[in-house]
């Protein structure tokens, strides 16, 4: 029969296609797991800021974290090498979460160091990826924004703990920062996706920080500026 070979050809091609994909996914999974491990280590390190004595030694904690991002950059490079050209979005659900986490960590680190909002460019630089798709393995805008939203929750926690540790100045700065972040996010027209859901939580973070500021203010604990 004439078309018999045709069909088996079509399907063996497909079988090969699937196997190749499986192979790549397997390799990506391995690298992503390592990335997550490193991210966890960095997070643990940064979490120690919340300790009473941690808040006084912010800069030394940050210094400890900076070299850890070197590992992240190495892993990113290896992840990049695993992905065929122009197929970022075919596999991107596999590293999406880790990338968001890393964006958060770099945003957190940057905030602790300089109390500024990290740009997408510097996030890309810190974790060793590109900003534009054309340039190679990049960080999606959504993932970066997701990282910023995670930062807001973390900061609202830090505001509370700062007060416990006796640092009354920090919550004021955090409040200003989160408020600005909030008004920034308000400019965005978000679709009904995960980013939007996360954004809906931002107002509660802001609320919490504002409450801390309120508590300090009515008790006259607000430091003179």
């Amino acid at each position: 029969m004439q078309h018999e070979n045709n069909i088996s050809q079509v399907f063996s091609d497909y079988q090969k296609y699937m196997e190749d994909e499986q192979q790549i996914r397997e390799e990506i999974r391995t690298v992503v797991r390592e990335l997550e491990q490193t991210a966890r280590e960095i997070l643990t390190q940064l979490q120690s800021v919340h300790q009473t004595n941690g808040i006084k030694s912010v800069s030394s904690i940050c210094d400890k974290c900076v070299p850890m991002f070197e590992t992240v950059r190495e892993k990113m490079a290896s992840l990049n090498s695993k992905i065929p050209v122009n197929q970022y979005y075919r596999y991107n659900d596999q590293w999406r979460f880790s990338l968001q986490r890393l964006a958060f960590l770099s945003a957190y680190l940057t905030y602790l160091q300089s109390e500024t909002l990290v740009t997408r460019e510097s996030v890309a630089q810190i974790i060793g990826v590109k900003v534009d798709r054309q340039d190679g393995f990049h960080i999606d805008l959504d993932d970066y924004l997701m990282g910023l939203l995670q930062l807001a929750s973390e900061l609202s926690r830090l505001a509370v703990n700062a007060v416990t540790a006796g640092d009354y100045g920090r919550p004021m700065k955090i409040a200003k920062f989160v408020a600005e972040l909030d008004s920034g996010f308000r400019l965005l027209n978000l679709k009904n996706d995960s980013l939007r859901k996360r954004f809906d939580g931002l107002k509660y973070d802001l609320k919490k920080v504002e409450e801390v500021v309120y508590d300090l203010t009515i008790r006259g604990l607000k430091p003179a500026e």
Binding site: T119, L145, S183, L187, L188, N189
Partner: peptide
């Protein structure tokens, strides 16, 4: 402010 400008760009 730079933050707002940045977000306008994201928008």
């Amino acid at each position: 402010s730079p933050v707002i400008q940045m977000f306008k760009c994201f928008q």
